[in-house]
Design a binder for these strands. Structure first.
Length: 447
RNA sequence: GACCCCUUCGUCUAGUGGUUAGGACACCGGCCUUUCACGCCGGCAGCACGGGUUCGAGUCCCGUAGGGGUCGCCA
């Protein structure tokens, strides 16, 4: 039988990083086994059930590239979904739950209690076979000893999570339940429910949780808890996915940098960790850098132009060769997508914005004669390319009897407005003589 | 309170009875260099603790401590 897994988020209005990782593990397992990835919306709680809240989750998954084979096509529960096992919104599955509840009632496996319906739960310890944790024997807690039965339908008629979750997994032929470890203790309830319905429970795999860097529980308000933080924070989806895959799963050898295709190839349940993992932004940053620089030229260009546009910098006025050359000067140097505009924006700006601190350090009165001399040297150059620019700068520095850096820094700041940036000589070559001299002049008047 | 899971460098991890306990990120030096990076070389740093079992334990067992989770007419 082919693998069928599902990601079943509750529309809380944001996609939690832990939820995203659960989705990723399910998705990877489905793709690895050539199985089916189902997306089901657990919107049984009216209070937080809105179309917008669902869309946030769908958008987050789409951004990551975690496509689903069956499930909603939009956040609108009334809209037709994709797949044969729908509806994929629990709010639309009332009839199915009614039928299953009646089945339990008819078999005396459930009963009315103060207007609600409770399930007759076993008092015996339940063994939970788990692909990650092994066989877990779950005994009753002291409160459960007093009354092991639990509510499956509220007095307002609405079925609760435990019931609908199990019913849906049965109806949707789910073969593997891969979810957060926070559900491990509750799984005894689910297993008994499966048995009550005469069904073989699916395989369970409870994956460890993601904690904050200090080891505390990650909650909604913590930085990095929401997927949008990464989208807006300049991270590539492939980097986020790669990092998330490494939190709680290991390929067993020392490979860490992996594109999605390799993740799919290598992911399996036996590499899943049992201990919770702490989130380390520094490592994500490193992977982000690695993924950015392994981007193909065209893909990088697409990202760069989007970033420049978002920063209000128009690249359309320049010809393609110029833009490509500018981008070529910063590949391998960009660690975060959000740094692109600041790093090469000056190529496309008419008037350079000079960083105050850079100006204070480099565009000083003492450096004015240096920059002025360099301007003279550059104005008389037969060829205006990286080699000639470097040669002229060095000989000018020698003539002035100062170190190169006293010419380099003013020139850099004059041209780019910043102390850091692409290779100076190459950047000036691309800018061209007229533009470089113009920027030198503007800086000289300000010194 | 009860029940369940977990515990190797700061962090993510490799390790399935015999290893100088490996890698990565971060950090600290050095080299390279026109800046910042990259890269290269080197360094710091770990088996939570206590008992067993065994010729031998990071690896197996028990206990303790610590962390996380669950016990709801939330999901």
């Amino acid at each position: 039988m082919s693998v069928r897994v599902r990601f079943a988020p509750s529309p809380t209005g944001y996609l939690h990083i832990g939820g995203a990782r659960t989705a990723l593990f399910n998705w990877l397992y489905a793709r690895h086994t050539d199985g089916t990835f189902v997306l089901r919306v657990e919107d049984t709680d009216d209070a937080r059930n809105t179309r917008e809240a669902v869309d946030v989750i769908l958008d987050g998954l789409r951004w990551l590239g975690l496509d689903w084979d069956e499930g909603p096509v939009s956040g609108d529960a009334m809209q037709q979904s994709r797949g044969e096992n729908g509806p994929y919104f629990q709010s639309q599955r009332g009839d199915i739950y009614q039928r299953r509840i009646q089945e339990l009632l008819d078999n005396d496996l459930a009963y009315d209690h103060e207007g609600a319906i409770k399930f007759r739960m076993t008092r015996e310890p339940v063994t939970i076979p788990d692909l990650v944790a092994g066989n877990v024997v779950r005994k009753l807690t002291d409160r459960e000893e007093a009354d092991p039965d639990f509510v499956i339908v509220r007095s307002d008629g609405k079925p609760v999570f435990h019931l609908v979750n199990v019913v849906d997994d049965i109806e949707m032929d789910i073969t593997h339940v891969i979810r957060g470890e926070d559900h491990l203790s509750n799984t005894s309830k689910h297993i008994e429910l499966f048995k009550a319905f005469g069904e073989e429970p699916p395989k369970f795999a409870h994956i460890p949780l993601i904690l904050n860097n200090d080891g505390s529980k990650m909650s909604k308000r913590d930085t990095g808890a929401s997927m949008t933080a990464y989208k807006e924070g300049g991270y590539l989806p492939s980097a986020v996915l790669n990092y998330l895959s490494l939190l709680g799963w290991s390929p067993k050898d020392d490979t860490e940098l992996m594109p999605l295709t390799e993740l799919i190839k290598r992911f399996d349940m036996d590499g899943v960790q049992r201990a919770n993992a702490r989130f380390d932004m520094a490592k994500l940053d490193w992977l982000n850098f690695e993924h950015i620089r392994s981007l193909k030229q065209e893909a990088f260009k697409t990202q760069a132009i989007a970033q420049l546009q978002a920063a209000g910098i128009d690249t359309a006025a320049r010809d393609d060769d110029y833009t490509n050359a500018a981008l070529a000067l910063c590949t391998d140097k960009i660690k975060n997508l959000n740094d692109i505009a600041g790093y090469i924006g000056f190529f496309f700006l008419d008037a350079v914005e000079i960083d105050a601190e850079a100006a204070e350090q480099a565009l000083t009165p003492e450096n004015r004669p240096h920059l002025a001399a360099l301007r003279e040297a550059y104005a008389g150059l037969a060829k205006f390319n990286a080699d000639s620019l470097q040669g002229a700068l060095k000989s000018t520095a020698a003539a002035l009897e100062v170190k190169n850096k006293f010419l380099v820094m003013p020139a850099r700041v004059a041209c780019t407005g910043s102390k850091v940036g692409p290779s100076l000589y190459h950047l000036m070559e691309l800018l061209g003589e007229a533009e470089v001299l113009k920027r030198f002049d503007a800086a000289l008047t300000a010194m």
